[in-house]
Computed example of a mutant assay.
Amino acid sequence: MMKKDRNQFVDIMRGIAMLLVVLGHTMTGCTVDSQQSLLFNIVWSLQMPLFILISGYVTKYSCTIWNVKGLFKYIKRRTVAYMLPWFVWSFLIRGIVFGQKGFLDIKSLIWNMDSGYWFLATIWSISMIFGVASYVAELVGKDNNLKKQMTLLIVYILGMVVLASIGILLGMSFFAIKLTLYYMPFYYLGYLYGQYDARILDCEKGKRIVEFVIASSFIIWLFVILRISIYEMPDNGFAIIMRAGISLAGCIAISGLSKGLFTNKSDFFRGGAQLDRCTFSGNLLYALPIIMPGKNKKQLSHMQLDGEKSNFNKLCDDSDINNTGCKSHKQQQMFCIFIDGKEKIKIFFFGLGKEVWKYT
């Protein structure tokens, strides 16, 4: 059974990223010169950056690392989650079961991680640096959020410097250091947005800014992706920065457009999994009392629909209220009201799947 506070949109985006990865590998394995196609260019620009962005974003749901014990617990959990599958699939499955001797040569494998499951090593390395940075930030910043965020960023950048130094000494291919350094900014940006997205989207100005960023990102990404193959771009400084910027723009655009597509059509139908307080349903002729634990009764006196104000003239009796809301009226039910976690009352009409009135 799915938890009612689970972010289903994150699961949707994970599913999209997984499908993109499968499509990308299928194209390279089954289609001649697929890397030169527009479809592959689109897929390659999104698949792994989107995964890493999501990984950074979901850190908002992780437990805070308060002490050394919590840090070691975090390291243990992440190591088991990422490095155990890497070991099993690299050595046991491909090395022993499939008889691919290259996966039994530890030195060769560690210096050529991109031949196998490099992304597990990359996400593990990023998680380790981020975990240490989070612990130091909590230790130094305490109740000062700005100080905490600045400390986390500084330690995170220092982690990148240490990783780059190891790469210079042992080679950038060692333990996928080059790829890890490339994706670390994506992880941090995902984390940063996760920390402030609710605050940004809570005001109209913030929503407008997000919409502008999504639209601009889509235009930039589409303009470049139709003209340049970012997969074939060289690995020099400018090309790497440009490739990362285009991929980031594409991820922002796809995530924003997907959120609008899935949430607008499915909020009503997924409402049962998202309800935080109560659910009420009834006919347009009736007003419904809004009862919340520990709060006074609130009344909807009117609603705005298609420019016309419809007055309510009757309340449900208290006896008509049960644990799930107003009992059904004999009249045809036409709308549904639910209260989300922010105590905003939204009215959705059956079949429309869109918000037509909101009371705060």
Rank of each mutant, 00 (worst) to 15 (best):
I230T: 13
F223M: 14
Y231N: 12
G194W: 03
Y187V: 05
G190A: 06
W221I: 01
G245P: 02
R199V: 14
A215R: 13
L226C: 12
G260D: 09
F238I: 15
R199L: 14
G190F: 03
D197N: 15
Y231F: 14
L257H: 02
K207S: 11
Y196M: 10
A253G: 00
G194Y: 02
K205Y: 15
M233D: 01
L248T: 07
C203Q: 15
G245S: 12
F218P: 04
G250M: 03
S216D: 07
I240R: 04
G256P: 10
S217Y: 00
K205V: 15
S217T: 01
M242F: 13
I252E: 02
L261K: 06
S229C: 04
V224F: 09
L201C: 11
Y187H: 07
E232H: 10
I200N: 07
S216F: 07
G260Q: 12
R208D: 03
Y231V: 08
G250Q: 04
V224R: 04
L261M: 13
I225F: 02
M242K: 13
V213I: 12
R227L: 12
L248H: 06
L257S: 03
D202A: 11
Y193I: 11
A244N: 07
I254W: 01
E211I: 08
R227V: 05
D197A: 10
E232R: 00
Q195A: 08
S229M: 05
D197R: 14
M242N: 06
F223Y: 14
A249M: 12
F223S: 14
L226Y: 10
L201G: 10
L201M: 15
I252A: 02
S255Y: 01
A198C: 08
Y196H: 11
P234Q: 14
Y188V: 03
G250C: 03
C251D: 06
L248V: 06
Y193E: 02
G256M: 02
I230K: 01
A239E: 14
G190K: 11
K205Q: 15
S255M: 03
V224E: 04
S255H: 00
R199A: 11
I220S: 08
K207C: 10
D202R: 03
S258Y: 10
D202P: 05
P234L: 13
G245L: 02
L192E: 01
S247T: 02
S229A: 01
D197H: 15
I241F: 08
N236T: 06
A244Q: 11
A239L: 05
G260K: 12
K207Q: 15
V210D: 02
G237Y: 13
S217A: 07
S258N: 05
S247D: 06
R243N: 09
G206Q: 09
I241H: 05
S255Q: 01
L189R: 05
S216L: 12
S258D: 05
K259L: 05
I230P: 00
P234C: 13
L257I: 05
I225V: 11
C203N: 15
